[in-house]
Nucleic acid binder design. Structure first.
Length: 424
RNA sequence: GGAGAGGUGGCUGAGCGGUUUAAAGCGGCGGUCUUGAAAACCGUUGAAGGGUGAAACCUUCCGGGGGUUCGAAUCCCUCCCUCUCCGCCA
């Protein structure tokens, strides 16, 4: 959520900024609603003040043993007027909040112009697309004889799920372990385990609700729970409604969870294979930072994700997302894209976002800044370090040999009992 | 699932229809004293919003929501959460 004060004092400026995302906001409607809010709020507070004062004098009169009936008669009308005003104020504030919750974050100045994925800008490249002296297969073909079974998953559940058996299942687990160990052991993150279902308040805090409910799996229950679409939700919500002491910042968490996404808007896209699933494993990095440190933290966090790719020897490039492609809550996002020989293209494997105070305001997540009189909003960041399912694909496709075996990357061998090849 | 006890400011905790704008302690901040620190003592210290050039000042907030009342932390309804005992169970 953006600062409501920005809307009151700098509406035109905000509108101009949002136009970069290709978004037009109803300035006149907002200004009119805001004017009414102010009017009704002042009126309500005056009535409340009168009620409080009168009630107090009734109490005092009663204590003196006087007859309070005349005083009661004087304010008989007040209750109705006040109730009416309070109702209207509630209604207006609800409308204002609904509008605000629907408006995305302001973009960092460094975010390039553009409307779609096409306009994202490559800012670095590591490694070269893997070369083969045979025609490389995709992970579906490679996986079939190794225990990657989409038909079994379709029988158990439906489309967009997978069953992994034997060494492939173990390879996925090895990747998870390797990522967790690297981030906690070398990059200074604390490993954390969290619920895989969350309540609506948590999703509202990180920005998935109310706008993107159709992307989520909802548990039928009262009140409803939701399957997490990413560990970002439970981990970032740890600081919801909290005031964090200055000396405990930054908070750096690494968390492995399954992620559940309905992929409501993706019908027909990536329908084959493990690229886009309703359930996938991810190792997530989440950071809670002082505002002055957050920009540097974003660079560092992205670098931490890159290091995983480099240790695994997987070629990738770093993109900065353009205005139109940057997510709702993010001020600036880097995507890491890994080379997939099966598709002869780079595909997203990590997304590292800087939210500034956008999530923190929704979360009421603050810290005690010693230089300030009052608690201030923290900055939140997160990034995949990495999406495990897609990493599994990348390892399979980049490390395949002509016989369809998968060579095990050096860094994973300790996790696979020294195994050199999968398959064969 | 059954029975009971609770949820109060950064933390602990009193208050259980009006007599201060939630007592007190801890912690934080400032000061006195000290070469410096500790201790002691004195003062100060919740959050959000409105309002002003800045103040003053006003409103709201005692788990969430609703109700009773001139007036609710306090009474009623409902939901959530925590703890204890019983039952069930990985």
């Amino acid at each position: 959520m953006l600062d409501p004060r920005l809307f009151r004092t700098n509406l035109e400026e905000v509108a101009a900024q949002l136009a970069r995302r290709g978004l037009e906001i109803d300035q006149a409607g907002f200004a009119a609603l805001e004017a009414r809010r102010k009017d009704i709020q002042v009126q309500t507070q005056n009535l409340q003040n009168e009620r409080n004062t009168r009630s107090k004098s009734i109490g005092q009169a009663k204590a003196r043993g006087e007859d309070i009936q005349p005083l009661l008669d004087e304010i008989s009308h007040l209750g109705e007027d006040l109730k009416h005003c309070e109702r209207e104020l509630d209604e207006i504030q609800l409308q204002l909040e609904e509008r605000l919750l629907d408006i995305p974050n302001l973009l960092d100045l460094e975010v390039p112009e553009g409307l779609s994925e096409e306009d994202n800008v490559e800012i670095k490249r590591w490694g070269e697309p893997t070369r083969f002296d045979f025609s490389p297969k995709d992970h579906i073909e490679l996986g079939a004889p190794l225990g990657m079974d989409f038909e079994a998953a379709a029988k158990l559940t439906g489309a967009r799920f997978v069953v992994l058996q034997g060494s492939l299942a173990r390879l996925q687990r090895a990747l998870i372990q390797f990522m967790l160990d690297t981030h906690s052991g070398e990059h200074g993150y604390s490993e954390i385990y969290v619920p895989f279902m969350v309540n609506a308040d948590s999703l509202k805090g990180t920005g998935q609700l109310p706008k993107f409910e159709e992307d989520l799996f909802k548990i039928v229950r009262e009140p409803p729970y939701y399957l997490i679409p990413t560990a970002e939700v439970p981990v970032t919500n740890l600081v919801r409604d909290e005031i964090v002491e200055a000396e405990s910042l930054p908070l750096k968490f690494v968390c492995h969870t399954p992620c559940f996404r309905s992929e409501a808007g993706s019908a027909g896209r990536d329908t084959r294979g493990m690229i886009r699933q309703h359930q996938f494993e991810k190792v997530e990095l989440v950071r809670i930072e002082r505002p002055e440190d957050s920009a540097a933290a974003h660079e560092e966090l992205t670098r931490h994700a890159e290091i995983i790719l480099e240790k695994l020897g997987l070629p990738y490039r770093r993109m900065v997302l353009c205005a139109g492609d940057t997510g709702f809550s993010s001020a600036k996002t880097y995507d890491l894209e890994v080379w997939l020989p099966g598709q002869q293209t780079y595909r997203e494997i990590s997304s590292c976002s800087h939210f500034r105070d956008f999530q923190a305001r929704r979360l009421r997540a603050r810290w005690r800044n010693p230089a300030a009189a009052k608690p201030e909003l923290v900055h939140t960041l997160n990034g995949s370090g990495l999406a495990v399912g897609r990493t599994l694909i990348a390892v399979m496709e980049n490390y395949q040999d002509e016989q369809g075996r998968i060579r095990v990357p050096e860094v994973l061998k300790p996790y696979l009992g020294g195994l050199n090849f999968i398959g064969g």
